[in-house]
């Protein structure tokens, strides 16, 4: 047996594994076990129910769209915060983390209040014919809110480390500013941007607290998948809830794998040393 140099291998790994086993693995095993209770046919019936499909489409489609918007706005905000100096920059930089820090229930009621027909923004948007609260658009707004910090925070260190001389080289070769951005900077940022996109996506797909207030939860219209799980639980349909939970887990797993593949492709020029 190899002697370990630093002490505490057995106790630290043992403790970590036992803890993970009890807190994470055992409950997930229960989930899989319960879900298998309804059988393959039952699962199909559940997943092909129009209401389930509508909810999954809203959760998934909304999350994808929100992550996309977050990638664009996150890039803009990250760029501005890293590259430019202006009064209050530090304050705004700290503000970016607000969606992380603000409990989802608080964010949920605040957004609802803001975008409700009589709210500060809602009243104004109503005038130009846009309804946000209690519509799929409201779900989308809440998803953008909770996913916002991910793209900015993943991009910032990379933007800071981005060598200014590469841009200068491009400019010295006659590239215009926008050409430099789209041909040099953006490709270099792409893998990181994808990471941020994936994180924002994963967050938004499963989001519950900040969405349910503003969604209005109208079946077939503005009802999200996690809410369906809660409803099934309230009707004591444990197997159905578990099956839906497993389906959602698989879905987000699939999404993350495809983003990882995409990332690999966009990072194909990077040196792979490890």
């Amino acid at each position: 047996m190899r002697r370990r140099i630093l002490p505490g291998f057995g106790i630290s790994l043992g403790y970590a594994l036992a803890y993970l086993g009890l807190i994470v693995l055992l409950p997930l095993a229960a989930l899989a076990w319960k879900a298998s209770g309804i059988g393959f046919e039952g699962l199909l019936r559940l997943l092909s129910a129009p209401r389930t499909l509508a909810a999954l489409r809203l959760s998934l489609g909304g999350a994808l769209l929100a992550a996309l918007i977050n990638a664009v706005i996150g890039l803009l905000v990250g760029w501005v915060l890293v590259r430019y100096r202006f009064p209050g920059r530090r304050l705004f930089d700290a503000l970016v983390d607000l969606p992380f820090a603000l409990p989802t229930a608080v964010a949920g009621i605040a957004l609802t209040n803001l975008y409700a027909p009589n709210g500060w923004l809602g009243a104004w948007l109503e005038k130009i014919g846009i309804k946000v609260a209690y519509t799929p658009l409201g779900v989308f707004v809440a998803m953008v809110f909770v996913g916002f910090p991910f793209v900015v925070r993943t991009l910032q260190p990379v933007l800071t480390a981005l060598e200014r001389d590469v841009e200068e080289a491009a400019e010295s070769l006659g590239a215009r500013r926008w050409q430099t951005f789209f041909r040099v900077i953006l490709p270099m940022l792409a893998p990181t941007l994808l990471t941020g996109f994936a994180l924002a996506l994963a967050r938004a797909v499963g989001e519950y607290g900040s969405v349910i207030f503003i969604a209005g939860n109208i079946p077939m219209h503005s009802e999200i998948a996690p809410l369906l799980i809660v409803q099934k639980l309230e009707q004591f349909d444990y197997a159905g809830a578990a099956a839906l939970g497993v389906a959602m887990l698989l879905l987000s797993f699939l999404l993350l794998v495809s983003v990882a593949l995409l990332q690999r492709w966009s990072n194909r020029w990077a040196e792979r040393t490890s």
């Binding site: 993970l20 994470v24 693995l25 055992l26 409950p27 997930l28 229960a30 989930l31 076990w33 319960k34 989802t104 994963a202 797909v205 499963g206 989001e207 519950y208 607290g209 996690p226 809410l227 799980i229 809660v230 639980l233 004591f236 444990y238 809830a241 578990a242 939970g245 959602m248 887990l249 987000s252 993350l256």
Partner: peptide, 26 residues
């Protein structure tokens, strides 16, 4: 495994314990 809870919907995080310790749970 350590990162897993971050990619699970909060609702599912609650659900798994209901399935484990709830009236019809393990």
């Amino acid at each position: 495994l350590i990162d897993l809870p971050f990619s699970v919907s909060p609702v599912i995080s609650g659900l798994v314990y209901v399935l484990l310790f709830g009236a019809q749970g393990w």
